[in-house]
Each structure stands twice: as structure tokens, then as C-alpha cells.
């Protein structure tokens, strides 16, 4: 059996976990995805258009 690091896939994994700065990029990516999804969610809530003029102090039950 060959040593796994002879395979390009494992070489890539080795590069991925050993290269300085890549960790920060992953943290940045996580934070970026999280913040973007939070902002989009808030926009989605704020942009809710309703035909009715009714205002509810708590979620209306159907």
C-alpha cells in the first residue's frame, strides 16, 4: 500500500491544514457566511409586505 501523502488528494489536505493563514481564511469564511445570512434574514423580515393594516402584539394564531 502506498503512503497516503503520495496521493494528490492527501497532499491537498496536508496543505490545507498546515499552511499558515488558511485557518484564518476558514474562520473568515464561517464568519462571512454567518453574518451574510443574518443580514439577509433581517432584510427578509423587514421587507415583509402585508396587504392588511392589522397589527398584532404577538404572533397571530390561525
Amino acid at each position: 500500500m502506498n503512503f497516503p501523502l503520495e496521493q494528490p488528494l492527501f497532499q491537498f489536505f496536508h496543505w490545507l491544514i498546515n499552511t499558515p493563514g488558511v485557518g484564518a481564511a476558514v474562520v473568515g469564511l464561517l464568519v462571512g457566511v454567518a453574518v451574510t445570512s443574518f443580514v439577509l434574514t433581517l432584510r427578509w423580515i423587514a421587507s415583509a409586505k402585508s396587504g392588511e393594516q392589522e397589527s398584532y402584539p404577538y404572533p397571530p394564531r390561525h
Binding site: 490545507l16 498546515n18 499558515p20
Partner: peptide, 19 residues
């Protein structure tokens, strides 16, 4: 962050805490 590598557990902690 500048020199953080993915294999560093401290970085996992930073990622988890920030998230």
C-alpha cells in the same frame, strides 16, 4: 489569524467562539 493553521486547536476555539 495571520499565521493560524487549520490543525491548530486554538483556531477551532476562535472559530467556534466567534460563530
Amino acid at each position: 489569524l495571520l499565521y493560524g493553521r487549520l490543525q491548530a486547536p486554538l483556531l477551532w476555539d476562535i472559530a467556534s467562539l466567534t460563530l
